[in-house]
């Protein structure tokens, strides 16, 4: 019965798969921690599926077998200490099995030792500011112009014609592949949150407080995310773009940036 509802929902989903480039699941990402996070996510998911199959299976069987129209007499039992202890104890064990790897990942994520570079990230309404601690580089990173124009009501621009609509910035953050990048987050006004799914990093930027997090990207590429803490009118329009490049390309970028050329990074 309820399955029917699900099937119809799934049917609709299936029908739209043909012409879409969406994802169904969390990205595995490009850092060791993002892969561990993905594995944790899948582990808990499969546990839920297994528990769901057992519980829903029993329930659906009961819905069909124990109905009045079949002429069954209702049983009289209303208590069973054995059953109740069992279904308290088993979940405890399952939870323990989940908690151990989760705690391990958490401890790893805390280890911010020996960073290769530090970037100060400051949230503004509604853009990000980045400052490379050991280089003489600082810049704002705002929504790229094509998105900025297309997003306005009655802009006349088809948003599908804009590449990476709402997920492109004028000045992306550039970091070298394999480097341990430490981020120091703070905010100038309200609370923002810096998120890149592929890096499995989400950290709040809070005014007056310095937050720390880190990542070590193992693959070259462009990774996109967004502000994830409601920060006012244009909360939906302050994306995060991180470009992970080979170390020598990074050096070259540093040099051009220090010469005042702001265009390198967005050259595709």
């Amino acid at each position: 019965m309820i399955r029917k509802a699900f099937l119809s929902a799934l049917g609709l989903v299936a029908a739209s798969t043909a012409n879409a480039d969406w994802a169904l699941n969390m990205p595995k990402g490009v850092t060791e921690l993002s892969k561990e996070t993905y594995d944790l996510h899948m582990m808990v998911f499969w546990w839920c599926v297994a528990i769901g199959i057992v519980v829903f299976g029993v329930m659906i069987y009961s819905l069909f077998a124990h109905r009045k129209s079949k002429g069954v007499e209702p049983a009289k039992f209303s208590h069973s200490t054995f059953a109740e202890v069992t279904w308290t104890a088993i979940p405890c064990v399952i939870l323990l099995i989940m908690a151990v790897p989760a705690a391990e990942t958490m401890i790893k994520a805390e280890d911010s030792r020996n960073p290769d570079l530090s970037i100060v990230v400051t949230g503004y309404q509604w853009k990000w500011h980045y400052r490379y601690q050991d280089e003489d580089i600082a810049f704002y990173s705002s929504l790229a112009r094509p998105s900025l124009e297309a997003r306005l009501p009655n802009s006349g621009v088809d948003v599908y014609s804009v590449e990476n609509y709402l997920l492109e910035v004028d000045n992306p953050v550039v970091v070298p592949k394999g480097a341990k990048v430490r981020l120091l987050l703070t905010s100038n006004d309200v609370i923002h949150s810096w998120w890149v799914p592929e890096l499995a990093i989400k950290k709040d930027a809070v005014p007056g407080i310095v937050n720390e997090t880190w990542f070590q990207a193992e693959e070259v590429g462009t990774y996109r995310g967004q502000c994830t803490e409601l920060c006012g009118k244009d909360h939906g329009y302050m994306p995060v773009v991180v470009e992970v490049v080979e170390p020598d390309a990074y050096r070259a970028w540093i040099d051009t940036r220090q010469d005042g050329d702001t265009k390198f990074a967005s050259a595709q």
């Binding site: 805390e110 911010s112 030792r113 020996n114 960073p115 530090s118 120091l184 703070t186 310095v210 720390e212």
Partner: peptide, 13 residues
């Protein structure tokens, strides 16, 4: 043990 860098941040208001 696992801390080797401390960042002291000041926000000036």
């Amino acid at each position: 043990e696992y801390v080797d860098t401390i960042t002291l941040g000041y926000t000036f208001y």
